[in-house]
Design a protein around this nucleic acid. Structure first.
Lengths: 148, 148
DNA sequence: AAATTTTATTATGCATGCATAATAAAATTG
DNA sequence: CAATTTTATTATGCATGCATAATAAAATTT
């Protein structure tokens, strides 16, 4: 793997994780994105969809379709937001609350397993590299002259 | 970002890179996957499609559709493989060769920029974490009893 | 307050991933 | 060598990402 580029490693590693999460979720007729969304909704008071995208690192337009599917399968309800007529409040149904617990366990297990098998320092460096990449991209300082 | 899970960081970082590559490619009516594929084809003698998937970390079924699109847009040709009637040899067209040069430069610049701004040790640790994740997933040792 | 701009959401189309099924050619087995 | 299995490719459907456009409600400007 050391002979592969950084982008290759990022891509294939993420795809492996995604595939694993989707395989786990499919045992319960669910998907990875559905699980992530369930985890981002406040199970008590519901969550304005405005908050959901940023929390999940997902654009509103991508989230919208996932929420539609989730509403159709009875995991969530969309209710009007009394504070903003454009916005929507997302609430878990009892069914959604059950699935949420399952998703939480899978995500915790995955992340704890990794952290349990490698030093904290290496995890820190992993985060540092990721931060560097995100920083370079958001500043558009790779292919463009700095123009901000 | 340090308060985010490892899977979150992997996902959002990869999506940022993918988006950046697609934005660059779209300036030339191309896509990231097309660029990656161009880079994996031997510009001299062509490449059997059997070799392409593993090299790119992509399944044959995903590659097939990309090759179809690339053939339609005149970047590659599919020729019969004299050594194996099932297999196909992928050749770059002159047009494909041009685009290949452009892709190579983008990928090199990206990877060199990152390596130029962080210590080799941290990059090594990034690879180690990625290897750990891939290893755990391929051994199915996260959610399953070890059965191999 | 009316006009303009911004924001939140949805719909839709395309790109790219996986799963599955179909097909044809090779490889293996009997 | 005929029958079976494996391998390479393609087609298709669904999931999830982005881009873009449409719409409605706020927020801002004038």
């Amino acid at each position: 793997m050391r002979d592969k580029t950084i982008d290759y490693v990022l891509r294939t590693t993420w795809l492996a994780v995604q595939k694993m999460y989707n395989e786990e979720a499919s045992k319960f007729d669910s998907t990875m994105a559905t699980g992530f969304t369930l985890l981002s909704i406040d199970p008590e008071s519901g969550t304005p969809s405005t908050a959901l995208g940023p929390k999940m690192g997902m654009e509103a337009t991508s989230l919208s379709r996932i929420l539609k599917t989730m509403e159709e399968s009875g995991l969530i309800e969309r209710k009007p937001n009394p504070k903003d007529g454009r916005s929507v409040l997302i609430h878990l149904t009892p069914f959604g609350r059950e699935k949420r617990d399952y998703s939480r366990e899978k995500v915790l297990t995955f992340n704890e397993t990794i952290r349990g098998q490698i030093s904290e320092e290496k995890i820190d460096h992993f985060y540092e590299v990721a931060e560097l990449i995100n920083g370079l991209i958001s500043k558009k300082s790779i292919y463009n002259q700095n123009e901000d």
